[in-house]
Design a binder for these strands. Structure first.
Lengths: 214, 214, 214, 214
DNA sequence: TATGAATGAGATTTCATTCAT
DNA sequence: TATGAATGAAATCTCATTCAT
């Protein structure tokens, strides 16, 4: 095992342990054991617990963003991108279900990883925006909408829905109907016939109302 | 100050400190100082750090769920409920911005509060579902949609959007256009004219494609 | 309840608690509860935990020595005194059996009371000596023996025997055959016929040997 | 120093400190200092103060019982065994005089060691009984006596006498007349000529009385 | 006088870091 | 280079004592 390989091995072990126990709840010895090495050896590769944690976070972030980019690029149409993204998120949650369950059930264990996730949400939202803009420009999405609202609608729905389904109802990612989620998001949830009744602000809505009266 | 008042004061101080420093990062002495009392006094009211933490979490949860219920009940139509909820969430995030910023910026300090938030998301989603069902029944919302998808769409969008805007762009909750968010969610984001182009599965979509080719 | 009565009540409560929990294992609050009063009240009657402990020890000692004196004086002959003493010790152990059992089984609880007992042994031995001397002088006991050995023989045998029987075999003090103990101690344990064989030092023994040979 | 040696060193240091200060009066730091190591090191070898204490007690007990067995086996005749045992006990007390003095003088410090000693008394009495039985069978001791009374007579006398002499009068173990103690125990303390006067129960005694009247 | 809430010194225990091997 | 025994600073928790009521 080269120096670089060992370093990576420690980083991965650290990821796994910090993940479940949080920063303060993790002992250097836990990480060493997880990596199958001696406690002192960790200090040959990282200056301190904090430095190890930070590098682990950075590494994790890089790799998540990378995966996200690859995932979203596999789709040709926007709907395909949406579905690819939803599948990816659902699988991600599923893979880390034990961690999320702890997190969701508010167990005592600390979770800097929660912070990591929050931050990734925002980074990812930025990436998503470029794809949304593109879809608006090429006519796949309504171009009169707010870019940020649309991005939030997409990413927020995916996270909330996949989170509830995979974490709470223990549904397997393969059993989710991604097409249905995509349709609901894309077409809206308001009853067609009474569309606009509750709203009084937009032109389209007013037209709709008028149309219904006729 | 009665025993009950002091207990509540400690609980609140504990909330503030755990909030910013996480479970393991918080010293009992910090909480005592925050409450303006001696270290030993904390132990007159709570058996251990862990018990104090758990009671603080429970208290916090109770009060959040309560507020949420009150908020959602202020709306008459579903659109009003949506807007009330979005405003509430935006204000909540705004009030706790310092905490969220720490969380979002992935500082080292542990955040069991992240777990609290995640869990509340799920509880709240359950409450939301009853209102969505009602709106479907009284014709405000499309009744052919999946209840869970719709609930996730609403709550996920609100959280993601308000989170990004308030935390990242530091926009004040009062400056957000809640009507616009509501409209986007309710009407969908897909361009009317080309609705379904990317999809190949539904009948309507196929019809739409056909129409465009003509 | 007068001041003096309350003081005595605290002292007795302290005796009971120190007895089972040792000095350091006892909390002032335990004593207050045992006495049915508030914690602060203890400090109205005693300056400190240590002072309370010392006064309790002193009180205890006075009353034990007093009982011992009364007991040993009830006997007319030395044999009667021996039996009275043995009965008294057996009953004493029986009354405090829970304490002795903890002590004997080497439970973790501290026992300054062990020290108290040890000291009382020595005080009592001194008292015993005056009665032994008297018995030697009036011809009840052999006058050629060492006063200290005889006293130790009496008190040591009683304590060891009653201790083993009452504490270990749970025999009730009334079921012990005190006459037999007295006889064994008074007459010796050596086989008459071979008396002295193992000894080569005293004149009497040599005479005895000679006598037996004849 | 191997791990095992260090463990033993800590155990011995713990013995010395607990010995003088009792369980609750002993600080882990005291033990660490006594062993010439750091406080934390103690916890590398023992899980808690309580576990350390228990293991020390167990070790102590094992080694005392072992010494006792070896001692009592050095004697050929019963008298020799008695004397060996008395010497051993006197020396034991002498070696630990500082501890016993604290104990005997009822200083405030706790003494779980008192419990240890009490328990050892009982264990040792059991061992002693096998030797007493043997001596009864081979004719060295009167076979009509109660085994328990005889054992108690022997061990009780030795402990009481050696305790008083070594602890209270500070007599050196070598200056004690063990032969005299043995003789007193073996031959009894009652005056030959008036043997039985105070007793009215046994046949021999009645005969003796009769003889004297003549 | 009686109380018990409040206190903080001091105990046990943990664990990041060092360093001799 | 790899190790894990040793360390001590710092955490949690206890409880004798004080003091306002």
């Amino acid at each position: 095992m080269t120096k670089e390989e060992r370093r990576t091995a420690i980083l991965k072990a650290a990821g796994r342990v910090f993940y479940y126990k949080g920063y303060e709840g993790t002992k250097i010895e836990d990480i060493a054991k997880e990596a199958g090495i001696g406690k002192g050896t960790v200090y040959e590769y990282f200056e301190s617990k904090q430095q190890l944690f930070e590098e682990m976070i950075a590494e994790n972030r890089r790799s998540y963003i990378q995966s996200f980019l690859e995932t979203v690029n596999t789709g040709r149409t926007f709907r395909e991108k949406f579905i690819a993204l939803a599948k990816y998120q659902a699988n991600l949650i599923h893979e880390h279900i034990a961690f999320f369950e702890n997190l969701a059930k508010s167990k005592i264990m600390a979770r800097e990883m929660g912070a990591l996730i929050l931050e990734q949400n925002f980074k990812v939202a930025e990436i998503l925006k470029t794809h949304v803009r593109e879809a608006m420009e090429n006519g796949e999405l309504r171009s009169d909408l707010d870019l940020d609202i649309v991005s939030s609608l997409i990413f927020g729905t995916i996270n909330q829905y996949c989170g509830v389904k995979v974490l709470y109802y223990h549904i397997h990612p393969e059993d989710l109907d991604y097409g249905k989620i995509a349709d609901t998001v894309l077409q809206g949830i308001q009853r067609r016939e009474i569309r606009g009744i509750s709203s009084t602000s937009t032109r389209t809505e007013k037209r709709a109302e008028k149309f219904q009266k006729e």
